[in-house]
Design a protein around this nucleic acid. Structure first.
Length: 598
RNA sequence: GGUCCCGUAGCUCAACUGGAUAGAGCAUCUGCCUUCUAAGCAGACGGUUUUGGGUUCGAGUCCCAACGGGAUCACCA
């Protein structure tokens, strides 16, 4: 479409010279898609040209339209409505463009690694409890953005940093020591992350009990909060861990290992992957050295109490702590260390994209500033892919109140719903059990992924577990369903010996609705670029839905197999082919698999 | 209180980055399966784009103010 619009723009410039004897900039020519209620394909907005034409918008449009019709072979008709010049483009052009696009194996996908290397971080869970709905949005978003950037031509490295150390895991450890009786995933048959999460909950219950007990004995709430015995025990474990106490480290390793096994299962179900894993326990000390170095260079300063800070008041931010007075590192210190390590390990890294909830916006603003001050070239190009919270009808998810939607449970429910709907429809009874099971996941997970990705990231979104995720309307399964129908048409063509590879189409074989669909599919390369530039999978989702809706409407009254006119039949096959290929590519960028039947 | 994000149909979301009569889905109602998969299609209903100013040929979109919701401003992560 850029190609077409730049040709039209050049023509319009010449037309302005011819009609109004005026030299104009290309930027004053605005071309957009013609709205569907009007005749035509591309629309030239003539309002900005009325100064030059010294004429009414309608008359200006009419004059330009006449000229273009006479001098530009692409333009086969025009209509002016108010200040809009609607141009009809020749069906020969659309036809040729479609065939050309079909001949490119990966239409709209840039050559692999033709753009700079970027890193996308997502997931990055704590290891004390299982993944939940919020992680699903995070993972689907990060994974999809990574795919999209790759499609746009970037070399992409997918990473996460696993928060494997700290007080949270020590809480699970201390509870397991006290109440666990040596329970393991094997002995209990419980998924590893769920088991560790169970002890995190057990810790909290005991903690509350002890607090209540202390308060009953006359301590203030604050005292109880800070000095409940089980909390002190957890803190003690953390100190022992930091000193490298063999027994504690051993338990820590074991419980984390359980969690990782559990997480791996969940990631596998989600269909997300990583190129490299970072562990906080490996990187949390790295930042300290950098801070010391930066202290010498005057980037940081030390307060009288021994704590280390950075002053960002000139940047409109605050002072920010980077080392505690006891010299231990904080979250920021770790992120500085991890970031610098990544730049070192991946030379030429253009930027990092951190998929993290919007509650950490300030943190990343500060982090990027610090990295810049530490002399990282291009640190400002780093980006916080910030997304809104997933809220439940009753408000935010609270682990303490048990309102957390567990990732494994939700995935299982989605597959179950998909199964129930499929069996009601009864269209796939001849599939084998394993084919069915993978189909239910494709559709169920597809519904969930689409549901979470069709909303632009920055918006917080509502998730109602009862109403749950739809399978009809603007949904993943709707798109899958139309894909399946289209594939079925192509299969039947082959069955009847009709070739589905189309090398040329008679331009007269198209009707107007088909030209519109072709036009839609030709926007694809720009859709990919736009989604990549904005880090926004919803751009892909919306295009996929719009295209599918148009296809579905068209499918209703355009038969392929029963079309007697050979040229029309071939044209429809070409269109169907284009649709299936593009939609499969698009859904893959969202991490959604497409079934052959459903 | 400072900073940032959000506010569009009863509900969930769009709107090509300043363009035409603001569009979809869900819900409700009405039609369409001896026709390539009805998880579909067509139609009806539904709006002062939170409010008030401003910028200009033109504002849901940009600017200012107010109101409402969320986040953040930790020696937590």
């Amino acid at each position: 479409m850029q190609h077409l619009d730049s040709i039209l723009t050049q023509s319009a410039i010449v037309a302005c010279k011819a009609c109004f004897d005026a030299d104009i900039q290309a930027s004053t020519i605005q071309i957009q898609q013609t709205r569907k209620e009007f005749e035509g394909h591309r629309t030239l907005v003539v309002f900005p040209l009325t100064r030059i034409s010294k004429n009414s918008p309608e008359e200006t449009g009419r004059l330009l339209g006449e000229w273009l019709l006479a001098h530009d072979a692409l333009v086969v008709g025009f209509q002016t409505v108010k200040g809009f010049l609607n141009l009809s483009i020749s069906s020969t052009y659309w036809s040729e463009q479609l065939i050309a696009a079909l001949q490119i194996t990966h239409y709209g996908i840039a050559p692999l690694n033709s753009l700079p290397r970027v890193m996308v971080e997502y997931s990055s869970p704590n290891t004390n409890k299982p993944l939940h709905l919020g992680h699903l949005r995070n993972n689907f978003l990060g994974f999809s953005v990574a795919k999209i950037l790759q499609a746009a031509g970037h070399e992409v490295i997918k990473v996460q940093i696993i928060n494997d150390r700290g007080i949270h895991i020590c809480k699970s450890m201390v509870a397991w020591q006290r109440f666990g009786n040596g329970e393991t995933p094997d002995s209990s048959g419980m998924k590893g992350d769920k088991l560790v999460g169970k002890y995190y909950v057990a810790f909290d219950a005991e903690y509350k009990k002890e607090m209540a007990h202390m308060m009953a004995q006359g301590h203030t709430e604050d005292e109880a909060k800070k000095s409940a015995p089980i909390l002190l025990a957890a803190q003690n474990l953390l100190h022992q861990w930091e000193r490298g106490d063999a027994e504690v480290v051993e338990l820590w390793k074991q419980m984390n290992a359980w969690v990782y096994t559990g997480f791996e299962d969940t990631y596998k179900e989600m269909g997300v992957t990583f190129d490299k894993l970072y562990y906080e326990s490996d990187t949390y000390l790295l930042g300290k050295a950098q801070v010391e170095k930066g202290l010498d260079e005057g980037v940081f300063f030390r307060k009288d109490d021994g704590s280390t800070w950075i002053d960002l008041t000139d940047e409109g931010l605050d002072e920010k702590l980077v080392l505690r007075k006891d010299g231990t590192s904080v979250y920021m210190t770790q992120d500085i260390g991890t970031a610098l390590l990544r730049y070192e390990e991946f030379p030429g890294l253009d930027r990092q994209i951190y998929t993290v909830g919007n509650e950490q916006e300030y943190h990343f603003k500060v982090l990027f500033k610090i990295l810049s001050k530490l002399g990282i070239e291009g640190a400002e190009r780093n980006s916080h892919l910030s997304y809104g919270m997933v809220e439940l009808p009753e408000g935010k998810m609270k682990s303490r109140e048990g309102t957390v939607v567990d990732a494994d449970d939700l995935l299982a429910e989605m597959a179950e719903t998909s199964k129930r709907m499929a069996s009601e429809l009864g269209k796939i009874n001849d599939l084998s059990e394993s084919e069915k099971s993978s189909l239910f996941k494709q559709v169920g997970y597809g519904a969930l992924k689409y549901f979470l990705l069709k909303v632009s990231p920055q918006k917080s979104m509502m998730f109602d577990p009862v109403a749950s995720v739809d399978f009809i309307g603007n949904t993943g399964p709707f798109i899958q369903f139309n894909f399946v129908r289209a594939k079925s048409v192509l299969r039947k063509c082959l069955d009847e010996g009709i070739p589905t590879t189309i090398d040329s189409v008679d331009p007269n074989a198209w009707d107007e609705s088909e030209l519109r669909i072709i036009q839609q599919t030709l926007q694809w390369p720009e859709i990919v670029q736009s989604a990549a530039a904005q880090y926004d999978p919803s751009v892909i989702a919306n295009h996929s839905y719009e295209l599918t809706k148009a296809y579905s409407r068209w499918y209703q009254d355009h038969s392929v197999l029963k079309e007697p006119n050979e040229a029309k039949c071939a044209a429809r096959i070409a269109l169907t082919h284009m649709y299936t290929r593009q939609i499969e590519t698009a859904m893959a960028l969202l991490g959604i698999e497409m079934p052959e039947r459903m």
